[in-house]
Structures are given as C-alpha cells and as structure tokens.
C-alpha cells in the first residue's frame, strides 16, 4: 500500500509545483508545446524537485508518494494547462514500481496504454508499455518506432507506437486494471485543475467586462451559469481526490469504481463547464489569441483519454446491474468502510 503524505507535506509540495509552473509555464509555453517543442528547462526543474519518480517506492529511487498526493499535484498541473507530461511520467514510474521494475533514474518515461496515444512519446527516454493483461515492459525510447498521432483537440504532441524493440525489463501489475485506472485517474485530476483555471478566468472576466453599464457578472443570468460551473469544478476535484484516496487504501486495481466515477464526473464537468466559460467570454474567448482555449481544448481532449465517460459509466453500471438492487446501497457505503479504513 502506498503511503500518503500528511496534509502539511502535501500542501508544501503543491505550493512548490504551483510556484514553479507560475514562474516558468504560461500560455507561451503551452503554445510552444502545441508546436512540438519539448519544455526542456521545465522538465529539468521538475526533475530537480524529484517529481517524476515521486510515486515509485523509496527502495527504487522514488519518494513513495501516494495517489491522493499525486492527484493534488496533477490538479495543480492541470491548472497550468499541463505544459509537460509530468503526470504521465509519474504514473509510468509508479506502474513500473508496482510491476517490480526499477524505473530509470532520469529522463521522461512515457506511458503506453493499450489503444491509447502516447503523450510526448518520441521525446521519451524510456517507455513503460502495458498490455491488456497487466504485463508491463520497459523499453529504451531510442528503440521504439513512432508515428505521429494526429487530431487531438488539445494539439498536445502525441505518438502511437509502430514497433517496439526488445524490452529492457518486463514485469506484471497486481491487476490487469491497474494501468487503465492510473490513466483515468491522472486525466480526471488534470481536468479538475484545468476547469478550475478556466472558471477563475471566467469569473475574473465577468467582473471587468462591462455591458449595459455594468460588469456582466452583475447579471443574474451570468451569475447562475458561473455557479453551475463552480459546482461542476468542485465535483470534479472531490471525485478525483476521493479516487486517489481509494487507490491508496485498496490499491489501484481495486479502486475502479472511484476512479471511473472521477473520470465520468470530470468528463461531464469538462463538457458543462467548458460551455459555460466560453459563453461568458463570448467572441474574445473564441479567438486564437485568447488563452482560454489552451485550457478548454485540453479538457475536451483529456475527457476522451483513458476511457471517455461512456466507457467508464458502462463499466460501473454493468457491475452494479450484476450485483442487483439490494446490493446497490450496501456496496456504495462499504467502499470506504471496513478494510483499509484506518
């Protein structure tokens, strides 16, 4: 079971990441990333903080950070538009650790999930490739053949693997679901952060943009919409945090309900909240110049990554239907009681 840092430590970590990204990231870096420019300096800085390996066990050079802590870090990352694939690298290191493979000590480890495009694949020093059965293979990035994955709304660089060489190491995850759960968890957390940033931008704009002689935020029609957006952002954040905690308590592979719920709620929030912030910004938010789309396009992409709402909802629903009506409520309440409820 992964440990989780106490609230104080988590707070310090989040503040560090937030400050780093506030200083070194921003719209220009996000736009550069969309042109395929690897954020070299930024990566060096997160590596100096020990973040890429933080989720790996201490015995493997990591910090033994827990999933709930990771969610908090990823949410901050999302709030800055995730200018670098730190979340993917952290998840890859964690999965390698779970499979008993010591993650390489430096460089970006890309995460290749079955059927999914690999974020920043061709920039990776190493690749952790997971198959449907929970088999993990660590590859040298130089030996992997890539082809460009096109068409993502986010325009974040992504590749598909055309061919792998011989793996450096192989191992097995504790459950076949662990990897897809990690992918969903990280994207749910990123969405929660990006939506929070978009909401803050929209609220700020609503207080300065004037029409009919008043800030548009003074109109109830606008207030009511932003309240809905705030509610969706809060739900996405709570769902992601709860999913992280469930993964810490029961293991990644047994937290499918919470992680799936987080992905569903975050995905729905990205849809609803994204529409609202664009409505508030109106034409200016529809321009390339304005930074709003750097966040909203990413949210819309991330909701499709590692299983869209539809996919996760179906899994949750099928499990509940199989268990039947009488088990519905007992199952829901049992999830954070009993085993592992310290």
């Amino acid at each position: 079971m992964a440990g989780d840092a106490d609230e104080g430590l988590r707070g310090i970590l989040i503040e560090q990441v937030d400050r780093l990204l506030a200083d070194s990231a921003g719209p220009a870096v996000l736009r550069a990333a969309e042109r395929g420019e690897w954020p070299e300096t930024l990566w060096a800085e997160v590596e100096a903080l020990g973040l890429p390996l933080a989720l790996a066990p201490e015995a493997m050079g990591g910090a033994g950070l827990g999933w709930e802590d990771a969610v908090a870090v990823w949410q901050v990352l999302g709030r800055h538009g995730a200018p670098l694939p730190l979340a993917h690298g952290m998840a890859a290191a964690a999965l390698l650790g779970l499979a008993g493979i010591e993650p390489p000590p430096a460089g970006f480890i890309a995460l290749a999930l079955p059927g999914e495009a690999v974020a920043w694949g061709r920039r990776a020093g190493h690749v952790a490739a997971v198959d449907e059965g929970g088999q993990v293979a660590l590859h040298d990035g130089a030996g992997v053949e890539w082809r460009r994955a096109e068409g993502a709304i986010s325009r974040e660089p992504a590749d598909r693997t055309a061919a792998f060489g011989t793996p450096l190491r192989t191992g097995r995850l504790p459950g076949a679901e662990a990897a897809r759960n990690a992918g969903a968890l990280l994207h749910a957390a990123l969405i929660a952060g990006a939506l929070e940033a978009a909401l803050d931008m929209a609220v700020e704009y609503a207080t300065v943009r004037k029409q009919f002689g008043r800030p548009i935020g003074a109109f109830q029609a606008v207030q009511q919409q932003l309240a809905v957006c705030a509610s969706e952002a809060a739900a996405a954040a709570v769902a992601a945090a709860a999913a992280g905690r469930a993964a810490d308590r029961r293991g990644l592979e047994d937290a499918g309900f919470e992680i799936g719920s987080a992905k569903v709620v975050a995905g729905e929030a990205a849809g609803t909240g994204g529409s609202i912030v664009h409505q508030v910004f109106a034409a200016i938010g529809f321009t390339d110049d304005h930074p709003l789309h750097l966040f909203t396009r990413r949210m819309w992409s991330w909701r499709d990554a590692a299983g869209a709402e539809r996919v996760w909802a179906r899994r949750i629903g099928e499990a509940a239907l199989a268990r039947g009506g009488d088990a519905l409520w007992p199952d829901l309440t049992a999830r954070n009681e009993g085993r592992g409820n310290a």
Binding site: V238, V265, A313, R315, G317, L332
Partner: peptide
Amino acid sequence: APEAVGRLLARAGTLRQM
C-alpha cells in the same frame, strides 16, 4: 441501462463525498 446507471452512480458517489 449500464451507461445511464453508471453515470448516476458516479454522481451519487461524488455527492456523497461532498
């Protein structure tokens, strides 16, 4: 049903946490 029920349960679990 599975998708609709799953969406409802995802919300129910999240609202319960809130």
